[in-house]
Computed example of a mutant assay.
Amino acid sequence: MPLRLAVTAAGLITGFAADTLFGDPRRAHPVALFGTASAAVERRLWADSKPRGAVYAALCAGAATGLGLVAQAATRRRPFARFALTAASTWVVLGGRGLAAEGQEMARLLEAGDVPAARARLSHLCARDATELDSAELTRAATESIAENTSDAVVAPLLWGAVAGIPGLLGYRALNTLDAMVGYRSPRHRNFGWAAARADDVVNLLPSRAGAVLTAACAPLAGGWARASWKAWRRDGARHPSPNAGQVEAAFAGALDLRLGGTNSYGGEVERRGTLGDGRAPEPADLRRAVRLSRAVGVGALAVAAVVAR
């Protein structure tokens, strides 16, 4: 096996372990710094224009990817440095521990009946308007967000790191962050954020489907059913308006015997989604099962990434 590929696999595994043990860096998180810099660029470049938005996305994501390319080139003959930078990059782009912690906290608040606190906390998981959501809708929103973010924050970066090394890790995370910042169909970002949203859709096409397959494979580890997960994914994955989010959300719904989907509001924009799964409406305890499934899928994605990198 070529040394550089073994180094990449080792870096991915070490970075995953760091995220599992320590979570996100507490100070000067590189993703937060990227977001701050991208927001400053947006203030200078914004116009209600798809071409201007495409330039914005290319500049911001290109800068992150270029930084990765420089790091990759600089460590071409320095395997330990390549390993260390791959591990550090993996650590900062993954969000598995943080996602699990948010899911557990939402479960705790909802089990305690603290709906106002749960409404405020939901913003840590997604941009959905929680002002009028009751306990049942908050539980659904959190369960769907855990499923979607398992793909976005764990499966996809690991797979991109496996196939493209440090540039893949940094470039993917940059695009995903831009999508979270400007990819929503608000009046301000409907045109300007179009390129970032479409680019994020493209880079997640394969990872989201890999995440759905891994969800079905890991379903028994969360007390679920692989066959039901596979069935729900194949039947319902395309009902979601996103080409990617519905894949893993449907797989989670089938795995946990839940019914997801419905009507959501984002910044005044109402989005109607199809029904995902045949089960019952999720309850707060199901959030803990979703977290267990998310963690199992993350480990499965790491195993796949390590094999691909080899």
Rank of each mutant, 00 (worst) to 15 (best):
L5P: 02
V7P: 05
A9V: 09
A10V: 06
G11A: 09
L12H: 07
L12S: 05
F16C: 12
F22S: 13
G23N: 10
A28G: 06
K50R: 15
G62H: 11
G68Q: 12
L69A: 15
V70I: 15
A71V: 13
A73S: 14
A73K: 11
R76D: 12
F80A: 15
F80I: 14
A81F: 07
F83Q: 03
F83E: 03
A84D: 05
L85S: 03
S89I: 02
S89V: 05
W91N: 02
V93H: 03
G96D: 04
L99V: 07
E102T: 12
L110D: 01
G113A: 05
D114A: 15
D114C: 01
A127N: 12
A130Y: 10
S135C: 10
A136Q: 15
E137W: 01
T139K: 04
T139Y: 01
S145M: 02
E148L: 02
L159S: 10
A164T: 03
A164W: 11
G168T: 01
G168Y: 06
L170P: 00
Y172Q: 09
A174Q: 09
A174F: 04
D179V: 06
M181I: 08
M181D: 04
G183S: 10
R185H: 12
N191S: 13
W194N: 09
A199G: 10
D200V: 03
D201Q: 08
A210E: 01
G211P: 00
V213D: 00
A216S: 11
A216L: 06
P220N: 10
L221P: 04
A222C: 08
W230G: 04
A232P: 03
W233G: 00
W233F: 13
R239V: 05
R239D: 02
H240F: 08
S242L: 10
N244D: 07
A245G: 12
G246Q: 05
E249M: 13
A250C: 09
L258F: 09
L260G: 00
T263F: 03
N264V: 13
S265W: 02
S265R: 15
E269T: 15
V270A: 13
T275P: 07
G277I: 13
A281W: 11
A281E: 15
A281L: 14
P282H: 12
A285M: 07
L287G: 13
R295P: 00
A301T: 07
V308T: 14
A309S: 14
A309G: 10
